[in-house]
Design a protein around this nucleic acid. Structure first.
Lengths: 153, 153
DNA sequence: TGCACCTTTTACGTTTACGTCAATTCTATA
DNA sequence: TATAGAATTGACGTAAACGTAAAAGGTGCA
């Protein structure tokens, strides 16, 4: 039950309790590699998005977990909720054609795309309003800082 | 202490406990006129953003409250937090030039504008990523729905 | 052997802007 | 007078995605 010492995970010959050639990562390495915190990884597991193996109580992340994490992060980036991501990933079936999964993903994506476009419109609107207000405020400041201009000369 | 009956607030001669010509609105009317809920108005009051008078326990919103509410809603629209809005409004002084208020507003606005632009960039990025993914998914669906095309003929 | 570092579980805290009761009171109207 | 429609306060709930502590167990290295 010896573990890899941190930083040399690649060059080792551990007990291969699962498969040959698997390079397992512990939580710290995962966090570093993917730019997330330990808490986040545990949180995702708690939500059923990840399922690392265990060596005793230590989490060991496989290639599969890494792929899933990548998907989660992509989903997060485009604005899906974790619940959505889970719903889509839960449909994954390595033995089938995954048509249902793909359809669901596409459906959710279309809706999310619409949301994003709406959001963008809102933001552009806000930018416009804010710019207007700023111009007005600047004008008021000018009038207050140089009122003598209309008196002198 | 008679109140205006709902719907005829304009045509009345009430007791003018405050000022002449004030057309006071109760919370329901305010909500309807500004498209917010009662809860929202009470919440804003709780946060010190509004300060309606009272007739007994009934809230009466003055012209001033309406102006403040408009500002709140504008602030909300451009993405300020209520705390920011309050901070800016708290500087308002009817007897002064309000230079400090204006400077603060401008400062906050510049920062908010930067945030909005950043957000817009993020959203556009997300839209791009999502569109890519969707194209990929569509492609996968095509390959799954018509695999006979590469066999037939 | 001692220490620094990694990891674990559990569980409450954070943020923002309200929503949603619940119980009660007031008021106007038929 | 009965009833429906406003209004009140109080207080817990919600959403999402973690943050942050606490207390403890392993482990490699000097």
């Amino acid at each position: 039950m010896k573990l890899v010492s941190p930083g040399e995970a690649a060059a080792n010959t551990n007990d291969m309790s699962v498969e040959a050639g698997e390079d397992l990562a512990r939580i710290g390495e995962m966090a570093k590699n993917y730019g997330v915190t330990l808490r986040t990884l545990r949180f995702y597991e708690d939500k059923g998005l990840l399922n690392p193996q265990r060596d005793g109580s230590t989490r060991l992340y496989t290639r599969r977990d890494k792929a899933r994490l990548k998907l989660i992060l992509l989903g997060r980036k485009v604005g899906f909720s974790l619940r959505d991501v889970k719903q889509m990933m839960d449909l994954y079936d390595p033995t089938g054609s995954n048509t249902k999964q793909l359809r669901l993903a596409l459906d959710k994506s279309e809706k999310q795309l619409a949301r994003l476009q709406k959001q963008r419109a809102l933001i552009e609107d806000a930018i416009g309003e804010l710019s207007n207000s700023m111009a007005a405020v600047r004008q008021m400041l000018i009038e207050r800082s140089a009122p003598q201009a209309s008196v002198a000369s």
